[in-house]
């Protein structure tokens, strides 16, 4: 392993905030998009089922 310890890994040579902040921002963006995708799908399905029931 190229890191001396997990501590060194998370520290990222003192740049942990910027490195993990970036990856965290990506994770938040992806999760937000997945939530929106699922919400839009269930809304469409609910509307669709209501329509079929009538």
């Amino acid at each position: 392993m190229m890191w001396d310890s997990w501590g060194a890994f998370w520290d990222m040579g003192g740049r942990g905030f910027f490195v993990w902040g970036s990856y965290g921002a990506l994770a938040i963006a992806v999760i937000a998009e997945l939530v929106m995708l699922n919400r839009a799908r269930s809304n469409a399905l609910n509307a669709s089922h209501e329509n079929h029931d009538h």
Partner: peptide, 24 residues
Amino acid sequence: GFFVAPTDAQQGEVYRVIFIHVPA
């Protein structure tokens, strides 16, 4: 990106942001 690619000689570790920055 985190376990094979070496530390950058000039930028240190912060360059690892480019693995997502450039593709995005």
